[in-house]
């Protein structure tokens, strides 16, 4: 094969994926603002967003209920998906995700603890979530490194860690029920309790984490070649890994502060995107970010509509989607070999 034909096929496949995901995301965002207990026609939604609300009740619904909730879906979905992508790369484990290795539970416990000690201080709450998430990430990484733990061992360790932290959360919440305003929403993951304040405090973690992920993506590409190859290519392996973990923790913490213990987004989205677009993290960061937002928006709309006027936490839907996928990954030996 002549060299020229290699260069011509070199451009990564499925270039349309990112624009498509972005367009779908935009539509879902509008739908998410329009649909709900009191449906608003799309033109009205658009006009309200542009500052020409037909009446105050529409204005209030859009700006104080639907918009923050929809943005929360975007932020949390993006954050969890990208955090999952980073953790899978850095732990060299395709089963890793913030939910599965216990990072969400760690951040969750930190949130409940800070609600106990510093009630009402949202600033402290997000910072605590970040510290909790980061601590768990480092712990899991240390375990994986020290013991050379296999993929499955790491997952089981995550189950154990999650159980301990959820038990601690249970204890606190049972004794002090007022700590969590919406218990179901927090445990299963949901957006019912979202307001502008929580977005304002958690948003920066997500956005900074995302920006850092974009900057680190080229280095992550080399990191997955293994420590020795990466180091001989001139990568500062330990520093890079530390930064990637820090970044994943910031993203997971932001997501937990917004949506509670939302599972499976961080697992399935990176997998599907890797399958569709290949293993180039410079592309994958953007794709997982968009797809994470899309799938979360979609599930949240369904969660509101399925049993209307009752609303189910979005985490239930994501579990129905994600758990079978997780089982598939566990059982599919062929793929396992590809990723190990």
């Amino acid at each position: 094969m002549p060299i020229s034909s290699i260069s011509s096929t070199r451009s990564p496949n499925r270039r349309w994926l990112a624009p498509l995901l972005a367009a779908v995301g935009l539509l879902l965002l509008l739908a998410s603002i329009s649909l709900g207990a009191a449906p608003l026609p799309l033109p009205e939604v658009v006009r309200t967003l542009l500052g020409q609300a037909p009446d105050t009740s529409t204005y209030n619904i859009v700006f104080f209920a639907r918009l923050p909730r929809s943005l929360a879906c975007v932020l949390a979905g993006t954050a969890l998906a990208v955090a999952g992508l980073l953790l899978q790369a850095v732990l060299n484990n395709s089963l890793a995700s913030p939910g599965i290795i216990g990072v969400n539970a760690g951040a969750g416990l930190a949130v409940v603890l800070s609600a106990f000690f510093f009630p009402g201080l949202l600033f402290v709450r997000t910072l605590a979530a970040f510290a909790g998430a980061f601590g768990i990430c480092l712990l899991v990484y240390a375990v994986a490194r020290k013991t050379g733990a296999s993929r499955i061992t790491l997952v089981l360790a995550g189950v154990a860690v999650s159980s301990i932290f959820t038990a601690a959360i249970d204890t606190l919440v049972t004794l002090y029920p007022e700590l969590l305003m919406d218990r179901a929403s927090f445990y299963i993951g949901g957006f019912r309790a979202v307001d502008w304040d929580s977005l304002l405090f958690a948003g920066p973690y997500v956005l900074l984490g995302l920006a850092a992920a974009v900057l680190l993506a080229g280095r992550v590409n080399v990191l997955i070649l293994g420590d020795e190859v990466a180091a001989s290519l001139g990568l500062a392996v330990e520093r890079c890994r530390f930064l990637v973990i820090l970044c994943a923790a910031a993203l997971a913490a932001g997501a937990v502060c917004i949506a509670g213990l939302l599972g499976f987004v961080g697992l399935i989205v990176p997998h599907i995107m890797r399958l569709l677009a290949g293993n180039d993290h410079r592309r994958l960061v953007w794709l997982t970010a968009l797809a994470g937002a899309d799938i979360t928006l979609f599930c949240d709309i369904l969660a509101r509509l399925l049993f209307a006027p009752y609303e189910i936490p979005v985490g239930i839907l994501l579990s129905f989607l994600g758990a079978p996928f997780f089982l598939y990954l566990l059982l599919n030996r062929q793929r396992r070999r590809c990723f190990d």
Binding site: A217, R219, G226, N279, R282
Partner: peptide, 30 residues
Amino acid sequence: YLPQTRPLPALPAYMLVEHGRFPYLGFAKR
């Protein structure tokens, strides 16, 4: 340096060869 054992990520071969250029890339790693 080429180690004897190394992880085998699911990458097309040309992308691996591209990673050989890593020490020459700028901050954006393009």
